[in-house]
Every structure is written in structure tokens, then in C-alpha cells.
């Protein structure tokens, strides 16, 4: 329209963006600066981290746990999305039940999960009833605890992946399925040659968004195992700040996580862009 409309638009963009940047980005920048401060500018904080075996465990878990969690979420989410969008199988009850774990606050899910997986919790109670040996699901430093963390994380977030994939499935034109049926394609062939290629943009989008989120895992680990059980970078940084009272080292650890998320996130976005160019809009 004209200059006054343009001026209003500028204000409308600048004010919210400055608010977000001032509240979230500037503190992170300050943290970056302080992470290089160890009684004066130095790399000492980072060197201390690299000499700490807990840091390397946290770094390893921070790759392993998100990777496992995203795979579980994706397989379960896809299975749910496919069954729930099949017309004969539509059920409001199942759909609501499938979404429920995401609607429940994360901390409530984790509280519950703790009572379920504790040594004398419900899961071991059920296992004992069948006469088998209870398992130490949350035992610190064990692969089993890593498995438990992955399962619980996926339990809360699978509905999100399911909803994203359902949205993708709904954009596939019914004519394609009709054509596949007329050509005599079976269930598997239809899935392989119609559903999967058409769903690819939604799959890539869901994997990237969930991957970025999964890398920042914090509360699942903290509530289930404490910061030492299955350390990840967020909880490692938290315990440096809260228990060890070493804020600058904590910031150094958090900056390494930020760097990791940024690299993987930007890489993911580049992949996503390629897919959206090939297949039309990205879900």
C-alpha cells in the first residue's frame, strides 16, 4: 500500500524479533564469551572438559540417545500414521489415545516412567509375576539405562512424528492408490511405490525437526537417572553449574552442544531443501 503501512510492518517485524534475540540469543552470546574466560581470556575451560571422562561419556550419549530415540519414534510413528489413516480403521478412540502421551506434560510422563522403571517399580513387579528375573532398568552407566531413556523419550514424542506423517499422508491423492489397485499392486507394492515416495518430504521434515529436538535432551535423563547415570551434554552442563558451581565450564559444555545442534541442524536443512526442490512443498 504505502509508506505508513510499510512503517507499521517494519515495527511489527523488528519488535518481536528483538525481543526474542534479546531474551534468548544475547544471553547465549554472553555465555559464549564467558566460556572463554578462566581468570582472564583462555581456553582453559574447554581443556578441563576434554580432560574429564564424564564429558566424553556425555558427548557419546548425546549422539547415541537422540539417534536411537528418533529411530524408535519414526518406526512407531509411521506404523501408527499408516494404520490410523487407513479408512476402514479410523477410530477416534485410538487416535486420541495415540496423541495422549504428547498432551501430558513431559515432567508428568517422566514422573510416571520413574515409578515404572525403578528397581521395585511396576515393570519389575510385572516381570516378577511371570516368574522371570527383574532387571536394573535405570542402573547407572549401563547400556540398559540408555535403552530405557530412549524408550521413555520416544514414548512422549512419537505422537508428534505420527501427526506430521499423518498430515503428509493426507496430501497423497486418492487417484494414485486407485491407479495402483487397477495395476494389480498389492499392499506392500502400493506402500513401496506410492506411499513412501510421496511421503518422503514429510518424512525428511519430521526427521530433521525431531532430530534437532532430540539432541537437546535434558529432562528425560535428569529425572530418570540423575546427571551421572546416563550423562548427556545438557545434564553434564547442568551439574557443572548446579552441583560443582563452575558456571564458566558449564557454559563451555553447553556451547559444544549448541555447536553440535547448529551443525546437524544446518546440514539437515540443506538436505530438506534438496527434497523440497525435487518433490514440491516440504511438509
Amino acid at each position: 500500500m504505502n509508506a505508513s503501512a510499510k512503517r507499521l510492518r517494519t515495527v511489527f517485524v523488528v519488535v518481536p524479533c528483538i525481543f526474542m534475540i534479546a531474551t534468548l540469543v544475547l544471553p547465549a552470546m554472553n555465555g559464549l564469551l564467558l566460556s572463554f574466560d578462566h581468570n582472564g581470556p583462555s581456553l582453559a575451560n574447554y581443556k578441563i572438559l576434554f580432560d574429564d571422562s564424564m564429558f566424553w561419556r556425555a558427548l557419546g550419549n548425546n549422539l547415541l540417545v537422540p539417534f536411537g530415540s528418533v529411530i524408535v519414534e519414526f518406526v512407531l510413528g509411521l506404523a501408527l500414521a499408516l494404520t490410523l489413516t487407513a479408512r476402514r480403521n479410523r477410530s477416534a478412540l485410538i487416535e486420541t489415545a495415540a496423541i495422549l502421551p504428547f498432551a501430558i506434560p513431559e515432567i508428568v510422563i517422566l514422573t510416571l516412567a520413574r515409578y515404572i522403571f525403578l528397581p521395585r517399580g511396576y515393570l519389575n513387579g510385572a516381570i516378577a509375576m511371570t516368574g522371570m528375573h527383574p532387571l536394573p532398568w535405570l542402573s547407572p552407566r549401563s547400556p540398559l539405562a540408555i535403552f530405557t531413556v530412549i524408550v521413555v523419550d520416544a514414548w512422549h514424542v512419537t505422537p508428534v512424528v505420527m501427526l506430521m506423517l499423518m498430515a503428509g499422508l493426507q496430501t497423497i491423492p486418492a487417484e494414485l492408490y486407485e491407479a495402483a489397485r487397477l495395476d494389480g499392486a498389492g499392499t506392500f507394492a502400493t506402500f513401496r511405490f506410492v506411499t513412501l515416495p510421496m511421503l518422503m518430504p514429510a518424512i525428511v521434515g519430521a526427521l530433521i525437526l525431531r532430530g534437532i529436538d532430540a539432541l537437546r535432551i535434558f529432562s528425560t535423563v535428569l529425572v530418570l537417572t540423575g546427571p551421572e547415570g546416563v550423562p548427556v551434554l545438557s545434564t553434564y552442563s547442568y551439574s557443572l553449574w548446579d552441583d560443582a558451581q563452575k558456571p564458566h565450564e558449564a557454559m563451555a559444555a553447553s556451547m559444544i552442544l549448541a555447536l553440535m545442534v547448529t551443525i546437524i541442524g544446518i546440514g539437515g536443512l540443506l538436505v530438506a531443501r534438496r527434497f523440497s526442490r525435487d518433490d514440491g512443498a516440504l511438509a
Binding site: V13, P27, G31, S237, M251, M255
Partner: peptide, 30 residues
């Protein structure tokens, strides 16, 4: 406006990349 759209989307996706812990500790100091 398409310029506003670009600025908005990039700020929003940039914010998504920030881990909570990297913001929260220095923010506490501020």
C-alpha cells in the same frame, strides 16, 4: 511482506537451534 516473511522464518528457526541450557545459565546471570 516477503522480506518480513524471510526475516521472521529465519529468526524463528534460528531460535529453535539454541539448546535450553546454553541460554538458561547465562540468562540467569543477566
Amino acid at each position: 511482506s516477503s522480506i518480513a516473511q524471510r526475516i521472521g522464518f529465519s529468526t524463528v528457526s534460528g531460535i529453535r537451534l539454541l539448546p535450553m541450557i546454553a541460554v538458561a545459565i547465562p540468562l540467569g546471570i543477566i
